[in-house]
Simulated scan of single mutants.
Amino acid sequence: MAVTKLQTTQAITQNLTMVKRVLVALGLILSLVFVGGTKAAVLPIERADVLYHSYEGDGVTIDGPSVLLRKNIAGKVSVSANYYVDTVSGASIDVRATASPYEEVRKEKTVGLDYLNNKTLLSTSFTNSSENDFEANSLYVGVSQDFFGDLSTISLSYSKGWDVVGRRGDESFEEEADRQKFGLGFSQVATKSLIVGFNIEHISDEGYLNNPYRAVRFLDPTTDRGFSFVTEKYPNTRSSTAYSINANYYLPYRAAIYGDARIYNDTWGIKAQNVKLGYIHPVEDDWIFEVFLRHYKQDKADFYQDLFSRPNEFNFMARDKEMSTYTGLTAGISVSYEWQFSQTATFKKSAVHFEWDYMKFDYNDFRDATAQTPVGEEPLFGFSANVLRIFASIWY
């Protein structure tokens, strides 16, 4: 299974579309990379995107292409298709401590349908993600409604996922997991310069929720290193809830600032907070520059420890660093350039977009088990990563 998740072309599109809607709603006539509208509910604009993404960090490289196509029919229906590929190579610190590096390919396919009825937009999509040891299918449905003079929007969503988990080198190993996600969102044009929003997301997971390759370590004086490993043991249910607020403010000189804050908690004892602040600045009519800073903080799961006393010390035991106490800081910069064509031409406009993110993670209670030091005295782990996204878009 892929050890990290990068945004797909559609996810990147949605993020910048939100910012674009802010500026349009406030009367800003700009040609950003992604276009939306707030005069009324509208179908997504016809377009084609080609993306290349790359991630390098913690001994792992992930890269690959993505292609998104969208076509509207009779002004009421929009159909889309997305193909996304991750090629993963290397090994994270968890794997390096217990196994050798590996390479795998994940392929994801999504088809979607949007239906517009007056001020109501209905959306549905189906996604299949496949790799040599993991198969995931998910179905999404959502509805959004504009009201109060199109200054307010409320949205509801539901998704259902079915996962089949395997393990390389063990064809007899097969486990299943079911996932459900409920979402509620509200956005409001508060003033001529400000848009605010609020979102709630609840996720319910059931089944095999472990990563079959991750292990916990326990004291073992019979070994040279003083410890051994045994497979993690997780509960077979998990529920989580996240609340977020966001604000977007239009500045007098055609730029905008935005920010959002998010809190998260789940039944495994993990609590997390996330804060992001960004700035968007247009240059002339064709260029858009953006910078942002994001801070993330998380408390560990109830059954997480870096080092256990014995292999069956508790009913549930985890050592995945993503379930530990840690902080993350991400700084990003992006630049976009757009060409406008004649509205009577086959292609209306095109754009290129470049984004680079630098990520730094520091773990408070996860130690580097590969260090040649006495057990329990290894240095605390930390790493940095670089994420690169380059994509081109054509509107038709």
Rank of each mutant, 00 (worst) to 15 (best):
D260S: 05
W268A: 02
S244M: 00
V291T: 09
Y258W: 13
G269L: 13
V291A: 04
A242Y: 00
K271V: 01
Q298V: 03
F292N: 12
R254D: 15
N248P: 08
E201H: 07
W268T: 09
P235Q: 02
K271Y: 10
N265Q: 03
Y243H: 00
R225Y: 10
W268I: 10
Y253E: 07
E232V: 01
T241E: 07
W287C: 04
G207F: 05
L251P: 08
K271I: 12
G207N: 04
L277S: 15
D266K: 00
N246W: 00
Q273R: 07
I263P: 02
I203T: 15
I263G: 12
S228W: 02
I257V: 06
Q273N: 12
A215M: 04
G278M: 09
N265I: 05
Y249N: 03
T222W: 04
Y253N: 03
G226A: 01
K297V: 00
A272P: 10
Y208P: 03
D220W: 05
F229C: 13
R294L: 06
S239G: 07
Y213M: 10
Y213L: 08
T231K: 14
I263A: 15
I257Y: 14
H202D: 12
A215V: 03
T241H: 01
N210E: 06
T223K: 14
F227A: 15
E290H: 01
V291K: 14
D220P: 13
R238F: 11
T267C: 08
T267D: 12
R254V: 01
N248C: 12
A255M: 10
Y296H: 05
E206W: 12
Y279L: 02
Q298T: 00
A272D: 10
T223H: 09
